[in-house]
Simulated assay, not measured.
Amino acid sequence: MADAKKINPVVKLLLDLGPIVVFFIAYTKLKDSVFTYQGTEYSGFIMVTALFVPLLALTTFILYRMTGKVSVMQILTLVIVVVFGGLAIWFNDERFFKMKPTMIYLLFAGMLGFGLMRGQSYLQLVMEDAMPLKHEGWMILTRRLCLFFAALAVTNEVIWRTMSTDVWVNFKVFGLTAAIFVFFMSQGKLMQKYAADEGKA
């Protein structure tokens, strides 16, 4: 398999975060708007969803063209976004899009949990080059991330079912991003303790 091509980190960051930033900006401008198409009224949220889905597909394709690869997680995320975003638009029901993070995090938690039951860290398969750790370290980190993803899924369900759309959008854009950042920052001691020795396989 050909090695992935390296791209400017700023460009990669823009491709990774661009769709969610555009989603947030568009939502703040269109949230109170109503659009009529062929006799059916659509809220600003649904219109923003209709913008976000193809934009995420486009940025994922651009990333693939520039690097030669995309991760399994990115592909699965795109599939779930297309499916649940499409359902939200088709049925004109924003609840489908709001439950999308739940499905994504449950899927990730399920995959990691399945690997753990087999005595494997599927996280290691996708992140070993970025974070060289001993096997024990990967297993501990995978268990923690599995539980973390499950907690995010539950939190998303609680928020979208009990709070306003404005609160959910802020949670999705800022809360989830910050939670993932804080989680990995909090694993510093584990990564130091189980860092793989240089020159050892």
Results as ranks from 00 to 15, higher is better:
residue 98 K to N: 01
residue 99 M to T: 04
residue 101 P to I: 00
residue 101 P to L: 03
residue 102 T to V: 05
residue 104 I to P: 05
residue 105 Y to T: 05
residue 106 L to N: 12
residue 106 L to K: 08
residue 107 L to H: 04
residue 110 G to W: 06
residue 112 L to H: 07
residue 112 L to A: 05
residue 114 F to C: 09
residue 115 G to Q: 06
residue 116 L to V: 11
residue 120 Q to Y: 09
residue 123 L to S: 07
residue 124 Q to T: 13
residue 124 Q to F: 11
residue 124 Q to N: 13
residue 125 L to C: 12
residue 125 L to T: 14
residue 126 V to M: 15
residue 127 M to V: 14
residue 132 P to R: 11
residue 139 M to V: 14
residue 140 I to K: 15
residue 140 I to N: 07
residue 141 L to Q: 07
residue 144 R to T: 11
residue 145 L to C: 12
residue 145 L to E: 12
residue 145 L to S: 14
residue 146 C to A: 13
residue 146 C to R: 11
residue 148 F to E: 10
residue 149 F to W: 09
residue 150 A to C: 06
residue 151 A to N: 02
residue 153 A to D: 04
residue 153 A to S: 06
residue 154 V to P: 01
residue 155 T to Q: 09
residue 155 T to D: 04
residue 155 T to F: 01
residue 156 N to C: 01
residue 157 E to F: 00
residue 157 E to Y: 05
residue 158 V to L: 01
residue 159 I to T: 02
residue 160 W to T: 01
residue 163 M to Q: 06
residue 166 D to M: 01
residue 169 V to Y: 00
residue 169 V to P: 03
residue 170 N to H: 04
residue 173 V to R: 02
residue 182 V to H: 09
residue 187 Q to P: 10
residue 187 Q to V: 12
residue 187 Q to C: 07
residue 189 K to E: 10
residue 192 Q to W: 09
residue 194 Y to M: 10
residue 195 A to H: 15
residue 195 A to G: 11
residue 198 E to A: 15
residue 199 G to N: 13
residue 199 G to V: 08
residue 200 K to F: 10
